[in-house]
Amino acid sequence: MINILLFAHLQEAVGESKLTVDLSDVTVAQMKEWMEKHYPQLSLQQMMTAINEEFATDTTIVRSGDTIAFIPPISGG
């Protein structure tokens, strides 16, 4: 099981701030593809990703028990 944290407009699009999915040993890129397939309203390709509170790349492996967070770009002034 992988825990997924969603923030800002991602949370609004899915209607949840946290999801739990029955996946393991997938890359961040595969996780993004899975999310976009199950939640077609999402576009995660430009999102920063963290696994267990550490930034990750698309090739990082997500394992059972991990918490992955998709972090939207932030702008401000």
Rank of each mutant, 00 (worst) to 15 (best):
M1A: 09
M1D: 01
M1F: 07
I2K: 00
N3V: 08
L5M: 04
L5K: 08
L6K: 00
L6G: 02
A8N: 01
H9V: 05
H9W: 10
L10A: 06
Q11S: 07
Q11I: 03
E12A: 09
A13C: 00
V14D: 01
G15V: 02
E16G: 00
E16L: 03
E16Q: 10
S17T: 05
K18P: 00
L19E: 05
L19T: 00
L19R: 02
T20K: 02
T20S: 13
T20W: 00
T20R: 06
V21F: 05
V21E: 09
V21H: 04
D22H: 04
D22W: 01
D22A: 09
D22I: 03
L23V: 04
L23I: 07
L23G: 00
L23F: 04
L23R: 02
L23N: 02
S24E: 14
S24R: 05
S24H: 08
T27R: 03
T27Y: 06
T27N: 05
T27P: 01
V28K: 04
A29K: 10
Q30E: 15
Q30T: 00
Q30I: 00
M31P: 00
M31R: 01
K32T: 05
K32I: 07
W34S: 04
W34T: 02
W34R: 00
W34Y: 15
M35T: 01
M35H: 05
M35K: 02
E36A: 02
E36C: 03
K37G: 03
K37L: 12
P40L: 12
Q41E: 09
Q41C: 09
Q41M: 15
L42N: 01
L42F: 05
S43G: 12
S43T: 09
L44D: 03
L44Q: 03
Q45Y: 05
Q46V: 07
Q46L: 12
M47Y: 10
M48N: 15
I51C: 05
I51G: 05
N52K: 09
N52E: 08
N52S: 08
E53H: 12
E53Y: 13
E53L: 12
E53F: 10
E54Y: 09
E54T: 13
F55D: 11
D58K: 07
D58R: 06
T59M: 11
T59N: 15
T60N: 15
I61G: 04
I61P: 00
V62H: 06
V62I: 11
R63E: 13
R63V: 09
S64G: 12
G65N: 07
D66T: 08
D66M: 06
T67Y: 06
T67R: 09
I68Q: 03
I68T: 08
A69H: 12
A69M: 11
A69N: 12
I71L: 15
P72N: 14
P72K: 12
P73Y: 12
P73G: 14
P73W: 13
P73S: 14
I74C: 14
I74R: 12
I74H: 11
I74P: 09
I74N: 11
I74V: 15
I74E: 10
S75R: 11
S75Q: 12
G76V: 10
